[in-house]
Computed example of a mutant assay.
Amino acid sequence: MTQTGESALVLPVPEAEAVVGPWRERYDPSARLGVPAHVTVLYPFLPAHRLDAGVLGDLGELLAAQGAFDLAFTHCGDFPGVHYLAPSAGAAARLNALTAAVAARWPEHPPYGGRFAEVVPHLTVAYHDDPGPVAAGLAPHLPLTARAEAVRLLVFDGARWVRRADFPLSPKEPR
Rank of each mutant, 00 (worst) to 15 (best):
M1H: 12
Q3W: 07
G5V: 12
L9F: 04
L9I: 03
V13T: 02
V13M: 05
V13S: 08
A16D: 06
E17W: 13
E17N: 05
V19K: 14
V19R: 05
V19D: 06
V20K: 00
P22E: 14
R24Q: 08
R26K: 14
Y27T: 01
S30Y: 14
A31L: 09
R32G: 12
L33C: 07
G34Y: 12
G34Q: 13
V35I: 09
P36I: 04
P36D: 07
H38F: 01
H38C: 04
H38I: 05
T40R: 05
V41W: 01
L42P: 03
L42H: 03
Y43C: 05
F45N: 00
L46N: 05
L46C: 09
A48T: 08
A48Y: 07
A48N: 08
A48I: 06
L51A: 04
L51E: 08
D52E: 05
G54L: 14
L56F: 15
L56I: 14
G57S: 15
D58Y: 10
L59Q: 07
E61N: 09
E61C: 04
Q66I: 01
Q66H: 11
G67S: 03
G67C: 02
A68D: 12
F69V: 06
F69L: 04
D70N: 10
L71F: 01
A72I: 02
T74D: 07
H75E: 15
H75Y: 02
G77A: 11
D78H: 14
F79G: 00
G81Q: 09
V82H: 04
V82E: 00
H83I: 10
Y84K: 00
L85C: 06
L85H: 03
A86F: 02
P87T: 13
S88T: 10
A89R: 13
A89E: 14
G90S: 15
A92I: 02
R94Q: 09
L95Y: 09
L95A: 01
A97K: 05
T99D: 10
A100Y: 15
A100E: 15
A103M: 10
A104W: 03
R105S: 04
R105A: 10
W106M: 03
E108D: 14
P110I: 15
Y112W: 15
G114F: 10
A126G: 06
D130G: 03
P131A: 08
V134P: 00
A135W: 06
A135F: 06
G137E: 07
G137A: 09
G137M: 08
A139E: 08
A139M: 08
L142R: 11
L144W: 03
T145F: 02
T145L: 06
T145G: 00
A146Y: 01
A148F: 04
V151W: 02
L154T: 02
V155F: 06
G158L: 12
A159H: 14
A159C: 08
R160D: 14
R164S: 09
A165G: 03
P168L: 15
P168E: 15
K172D: 10
E173R: 13
E173D: 10
